[in-house]
């Protein structure tokens, strides 16, 4: 049964090898666009995730205020997870480390201008613009805290960028998916046309719908999978070339390969389905 379906499917492909090959290539090239956006989005997410995880609220203290005095008050605020005290000396040390060679001008200071500060880590749940704003307002009310920097504008920008990128991805996914489905649709339509006689005979002798349609589904899915593998190979080549020019992207090989094959098979199946539904009532 399976061998019959396979044989009939291959027979259909062998009747038009060139158009099968070319449409598989076209399919692969279209899919490559999806893959490139997928890869870029994936990498962007990784770097944004790193930035996001680092989010802390900075509270700058009065020089006279002692940490132990206000620590408990801050801990009481909902969403605060950990408080670290940075003394004036530590702040200077951190600044020196960050500036590296350019830090030499700091040597000439006669007085440390940096205030003592607190770095407040907040729970993941509280990492939302509104929540951070709420925590920030509460911090400002605590005597001894001169200034607070929470960077919620930065976070809201990040979220906006992320949302826009997801919208762009979805838009591209839809447009490319439609073109890719159309490629398969046309190919299967041609196969159906080439094999009218076979279909007619099968219907007359009492073959089930499943037997009649399966070779065409198989062809579409096969084309999708082959096109997917082709696009994966192209993506890999592009990735290696970019690595040579020192653009380091993370490349989740297995994830990408599975994603490509699944999406290829899925879109191929849909294309076949549309053609079959249109032509075989």
């Amino acid at each position: 049964m399976v061998s019959f379906i396979f044989k009939e499917s291959l027979r259909g492909i062998r009747k038009k090898p060139l158009s099968f090959l070319l449409s598989t290539f076209a399919f692969g090239l279209c899919l490559l666009i999806i893959l490139i956006f997928f890869l870029l989005t994936y990498n962007l997410f990784i770097s944004l995730k790193i930035a996001y995880d680092k989010i802390e609220i900075y509270a700058f203290l009065d020089e006279k205020t002692s940490f132990s005095e206000i620590k408990d008050k801050i801990s009481l605020i909902n969403g605060v997870e950990e408080i670290r005290y940075i003394s004036k000396d530590e702040a200077l040390k951190i600044l020196k480390e960050e500036l590296k060679e350019e830090a030499s001008f700091l040597e000439n200071l006669d007085r440390n201008p940096l205030p003592p500060s607190l770095r407040i880590r907040i729970s993941p749940k509280a990492k939302q613009v509104d929540e951070i704003k709420r925590i920030e307002d509460k911090l400002r009310l605590i005597p001894g805290i001169k200034d607070v920097w929470a960077g919620e504008e930065l976070i809201s920008k990040l979220v906006k960028v992320l949302n826009n990128i997801i919208y762009i991805d979805i838009g591209i996914l839809i447009v490319v998916a439609l073109s890719v489905i159309f490629i398969i649709f046309q190919n299967i339509e041609q196969s159906l046309f080439n094999r009218q006689r076979e279909i007619e005979i099968m219907q007359l002798v009492g073959a089930t719908d499943y037997f009649i349609k399966a070779p065409f589904y198989l062809e579409g899915i096969l084309e999708g999978v082959l096109g997917g593998i082709f696009s994966f190979i192209l993506l890999f080549i592009i990735y290696r070339i970019m690595s040579l020019s020192a653009i380091t992207l993370s490349f989740p090989t297995i994830l990408l390969l599975i994603f490509t094959i699944l999406i290829g098979a899925f879109l191929g199946g849909i294309g076949s389905n549309l053609a079959l539904n249109r032509i075989l009532k």
């Binding site: 219907q203 007359l204 002798v205 009492g206 073959a207 089930t208 719908d209």
Partner: peptide, 12 residues
């Protein structure tokens, strides 16, 4: 759905 099985008993 029944047509295919039915036709197996008929030669045309």
């Amino acid at each position: 759905k029944e047509i295919s099985l039915y036709r197996r008993n008929i030669g045309i």
